[in-house]
Design a protein around this nucleic acid. Structure first.
Lengths: 250, 250
DNA sequence: GCCTCTTCATGATATTTGTCAGAATGGCTT
DNA sequence: AAGCCATTCTGACAAATATCATGAAGAGGC
């Protein structure tokens, strides 16, 4: 079984190149790091094609490297004692994953699962930490990124602690629009991400049925249109009003 | 009015000394920093006695320095659009406050108010940032502290997203016990912190009345005793069971 | 293309929690 | 010590949300 998996992984390896030549390096935290250092950090790097539903890492295990989303979408979540998951973050192209736990020298505090077929790069721990220790400007930048992420978590906490499910759903749709909104020529903005209603519920912190019900309310109120599992935002102003306030959640 | 306030502050200045000679420096992030650097970072430091209810800084304002709790208790919170507060953290002796926002070069993401009369030291921004940039080991340590804080926020998010108010109250009492528990010779552990029921509600993310009701339930179930506003934990095992799980929330 | 399994949808109902109102208590100020 | 304001407490009720059940629709595998 494990052998079989290993074969799959080998088959799905993507032609290797250094981060230096990556077209989206400027979207990542590596932006600004010089070519020489990028080549060095890419030593033993691997880029692998993951299928929808595959897991990059599990909460509680030891991080041995850094994941970078080359192309795709990943959910980062925690699991409660009774098996329900809560999605803490949605990662997009150029996002680093697991680097906090790597720096913190702790176990993973979250798990990460691919939402749709994605290409993910993997940089061994020592490469990343060497760069970090050798380049204070980069270290600064990483620290600031962690602080920003900290602030977003604070916002999420406030949101979930004080807003109704209805308000949170509206806020979440607006958040998704920021990252995954595709302006169409027709009316409305399509959210280009394949989240199940259950995933949405696990972002908002509510039951799946509640999300489904509220989404059809939103639909009948003309705020969204539902096309399959994808959602189109029709009346953003009304959503903003429903969300009551809007602080960055991503 | 402002002049009057300023006078009060001046009157409440505590005799100045350097962090080098602070008896609780080993409880702080400054632990391990050498004396010379500590003296330097203490230049223009001030230590001020704050009265219960006074505010150290407000969300949205620009941080100009670092607060360190010399002796006392401080609540760190965010305010939602409709004026309800959510307590994100309780700071105790030796805790740094506002340093994340200082490093992130952003505005304060939270406000901080003193829960009981406290002595708080204040270190100007440039002193702190110089130390940070000049001492990579210290920078490392600070970054790790931020990562730890990040992990705790993730736990809080999970907790509030998935647990009932009853479970969260139990978990919060256990969290408070970790930090403020005073083992008594009689039975039970006294929580040595003057939180109003409203503060408790603002930690848990619920209504004040709900906290009051649940606390009397806990009391009649023999899990806690209520002496004034202070709470004594009588049956910790039962609380742990009620909390269902127990991940670090502080 | 068909079958199966997952996801979506809706209804009925139970439970939790919030809200409003009012009384009791306690701490603090003068 | 008296009085006042903030806090705690209790009750009644309303609203929001979860849970359980069931069927329909959709997606993926063979």
């Amino acid at each position: 079984m494990f052998k079989f998996k290993a074969v799959i992984v080998a088959v799905n390896k993507v032609p290797k190149n250094t981060c230096d030549s990556c077209p989206r390096v400027s979207q990542t935290l590596f932006d600004g790091v010089n070519s020489e250092e990028l080549v060095k950090v890419s030593e033993n790097k691997s880029c692998i094609r993951y299928k929808k539903g595959q897991t990059l890492y599990y909460e509680g295990t030891r991080p041995l490297g850094l994941f970078c989303v080359n192309g795709g979408k990943v959910k980062v979540f925690k699991m409660s004692s009774d098996g329900k998951e809560h999605i803490v973050h949605l990662a997009k192209d150029g996002d680093f994953l697991g680097y906090k736990d790597l720096i913190g020298e702790e176990f993973y505090t979250t798990s990460a699962t691919v939402l749709e077929d994605s290409i993910i790069c993997y940089i061994p721990k020592t490469n990343f930490l060497s760069l970090l220790q050798g380049n204070p400007v980069f270290f600064n930048k990483v620290t600031k990124a962690i602080i920003k992420s900290h602030g977003i978590l604070e916002n999420k906490l406030l949101n979930i602690a004080q807003k109704s499910v209805r308000e949170r759903l509206a806020a979440t749709l607006l958040m998704l629009k920021e990252t995954y909104g595709m302006e169409g020529n027709e009316q409305g903005v399509l959210l280009d991400i394949a989240l199940t209603r259950e995933d949405l519920a696990n972002i908002i912190g509510t039951a799946t049925e509640t999300v489904i019900r509220l989404l059809s309310e939103f639909k009948s109120e003309g705020m969204v249109a539902l096309q399959g599992k994808k959602i189109r935002i029709i009346n953003e102003a009304a959503l903003v009003k429903t969300a009551d306030f809007y602080e960055a959640l991503n």
